[in-house]
């Protein structure tokens, strides 16, 4: 048992405004910790909140017996860094969502913002809807907020979550976790607030420029609810969601063919030009 729990590396992160510490043990701990720090570069947090961080134990080793032992003890365990990085991302996000339940209004959405003003647009969509691809293209000019979960706090501010972008690359079974720094994505100079909210509606057969279609309030509530997390834990959740939509001019459906076409329209939505 001692092999599983002794030594190791700690990587302190902030996710959805909450402190977490990824505690990595095993013979590959130093190597994996360096990779985690690189990929999660914009979420690193060694500040005062680190002392009350929630632990996420990870174990990396070539010995299958030790890996099995660590897994049985509740650690995210394995022998392959890439697999562990792929599994760590949803582990952190899920823990952050659980921690934010009841206070944060959370959507399955990517987001980008005007780096100077913090005016953000949320790109809502289920897994596979194109959030990460769209954000990756857009954040070469706009600020990267997140590719996964947009959280709105009680002051209607967006809680930035600039995690690694999770990208499924050709011939790979697991997603690569790409640092926004390595991808050259812009950062943010200001706190973010939502200026616009759209649901992604990608259509490879579409012709013409991207366009926006207004969604009536009740239909918007029905469309957004499946793309929220822990909505019922909030006080008067539908009223809060409707109030948020009212403040951004309502939900709009964004019809487009390719993420490369989105920049002019989204830039206009955040008022960056």
């Amino acid at each position: 048992m001692g092999h599983v729990t002794t030594g190791g590396e700690s990587v302190h992160l902030t996710a959805l405004g909450r402190p977490f510490v990824v505690e990595i043990a095993g013979s590959g701990a130093a190597r994996l910790a360096a990779r985690v720090r690189a990929a999660w570069s914009r979420c690193l947090d060694e500040g005062p909140g680190a002392a009350r961080a929630t632990s996420i134990p990870v174990y990396v080793d070539d010995d299958p017996a030790l890996v099995a032992e660590a897994r049985a003890a509740g650690s995210l365990a394995g022998s392959d860094d890439r697999d562990l990085m792929d599994a760590l991302s949803p582990r952190v996000t899920t823990a952050a969502i659980v921690a934010g339940a009841g206070t944060l209004l959370m959507f399955h959405a990517g987001a980008v913002a005007d780096p100077r003003t913090g005016r953000a647009v949320a790109l809502v969509g289920a897994s596979g809807a194109g959030k990460t691809t769209a954000v990756r293209r857009l954040a070469t000019d706009l600020g990267y907020v997140t590719d996964e979960t947009v959280a709105i706090d009680g002051d209607d501010q967006v809680v930035a979550y600039p995690k690694p972008l999770s990208v499924l690359e050709p011939l790979q079974a697991t997603k690569s976790q790409l640092s926004p720094d390595d991808l050259g994505l812009h950062g943010l100079d200001a706190r973010c607030h939502l200026a616009s909210m759209v649901v992604l509606a990608r259509d490879p057969a579409r012709r013409g420029a991207p366009s926006l279609e207004p969604v009536a309030t009740l239909d918007a509530l029905a469309a957004l609810a499946p793309e929220t997390s822990s909505l019922a834990r909030l006080s008067r959740p539908l009223h809060r969601l409707a109030g948020l939509l009212d403040g951004v001019g309502g939900l709009q459906r964004l019809h487009y063919r390719d993420a490369d076409d989105l920049a002019p329209l989204v830039t206009e939505l955040v008022g960056a030009r």
Binding site: T217, L218, A225, L238, H239
Partner: peptide, 20 residues
């Protein structure tokens, strides 16, 4: 969990689903 009315129609949140 909530009931939100717009005009003569509404939405409810029940069992984690929004019903119109």
């Amino acid at each position: 969990d909530d009931w939100y009315v717009v005009g003569d129609r509404s939405a409810v949140l029940v069992g984690g689903r929004v019903l119109l």
